[in-house]
Write a protein that binds this DNA or RNA. Structure first.
Lengths: 214, 214
DNA sequence: GGTTAAGGGTGGTCTGACCACTTTACGGCG
DNA sequence: CGCCGTAAAGTGGTCAGACCACCCTTAACC
């Protein structure tokens, strides 16, 4: 950084600013928490208007790349791609807003998490899962969410977990979904008897209970 | 739309503007290509400054949600996340673990699409898939993308397809990935011999070829 | 040394000016 | 009446400037 924003005939100033900021972050080896130059300084250095700098920063902020704090400055944030997926998914899910697509996609993720978690479920986990199933203070949807949150944590694939969570949260705007209670009991049994090959057939044999039909 | 931006104590004006625009898109059932109100009109209607409106629009533009054209206006775009993906990739690369998550998640989706497509693959589809495999003008990555694009279309689960597409585009910024060529041939064979039960083991037995290691 | 107030710096928001480009409207001519 | 050219109106794009809310640092006072 030190040169003005390069103005290609098609590129808007905020896009040039964005590129320069990214280069600055790279060259300075900035880590999350590190401070960027002030808006005014950026505007001076890049010979752009402060508004144009702000437009670039707002775009980055929405993507979760930076955090701006009034009176303090602009800081590189711990990058959380999942927040971006959240915003994007709100559009994606809207387009694909058929119940069938959503529920099947979610079921697939749950099934795969169940299988990924398989080798990591020990006796203690079984206890916790069974405790969940027998907690009579929990409604079926909450139990479902807690159950699979547990399994997704065990799967140790954060991206899958987050995508599932977004689908789960989004599906709540449609209605509440869960499997028949026998399903959960049988899945825990499969973990108990170490019967990996029966996980997929189990998912295939249980239909989702659709709260809206009741 | 018609009320001013609600100012919560923590929310910035541009975030409120963003919400209102999203609501407007919903209420008007806007489709890609449809025109949004002008910046000045939005500023009047939402009782915000034009700069604040622009900040919100820049953020949406960077996400590929809208397209602004000087002299014409602001249009809802057919969702194309290319610019976003490029911007995010420089940050997503920093986490090797995220990378591992991404590849595994993508493989899972590809596997499930292959299975969902199973019952819809006919002789004509087989011809097309085989044609893909024998197109020597295609590099391995392009072939992989075309191959699975085809399968996801056959799966008829638009949500899964979109999530996979997003992951696929993310992963391209990291490196180029595909399976060993024998994989595709064997999968087409499974379709030909109608051997559904072997799809999952096939995916389990093939490692992803990582271009970066070559 | 501790506390408080002031000063300087930060981001946040808005207004206004002006430019480049597109679309619309109007007038003149055939 | 239709077409063409020009001007006006409308669009986004950029910048400067003003002022506010907040934060941090420094200086002054007890």
């Amino acid at each position: 950084m030190g040169s003005s924003v390069v103005m290609s005939s098609k590129q808007k100033v905020y896009q040039g600013v964005l590129q320069k900021i990214r280069q600055y972050i790279d060259h300075q080896h900035l880590m999350p928490g590190d401070k960027l130059p002030s808006e005014r300084e950026l505007a001076d250095t890049l010979q752009a208007g402060r508004s144009s700098v702000r437009e670039a920063l707002r775009a980055m902020e929405l993507l979760g790349l930076i955090e701006t704090r009034r009176g303090e400055g602009t800081f590189l944030s711990t990058y959380r791609p999942y927040e971006t997926v959240e915003l994007l998914s709100s559009f994606i899910l809207k387009e694909a807003r058929t119940r069938k697509d959503l529920f099947l996609a979610k079921k697939i993720l749950e099934k795969e998490a169940a299988k990924l978690a398989f080798s990591r479920i020990d006796g203690q986990d079984l206890d916790k899962l069974e405790h969940l199933l027998h907690d009579s203070l929990m409604g079926p949807t909450d139990r479902h969410v807690a159950f699979f949150k547990y399994l997704f944590a065990k799967s140790e694939n954060l991206l899958l977990a987050r995508v599932w969570q977004l689908m789960e949260e989004f599906s709540h705007t449609i209605n509440k979904l869960y499997y028949n209670k026998v399903f959960y009991i049988e899945l825990v049994q499969l973990y108990s008897t170490k019967n990996y090959q029966l996980i997929e057939p189990l998912f295939d044999s249980f239909a989702i209970v659709d709260d809206q039909m009741e």
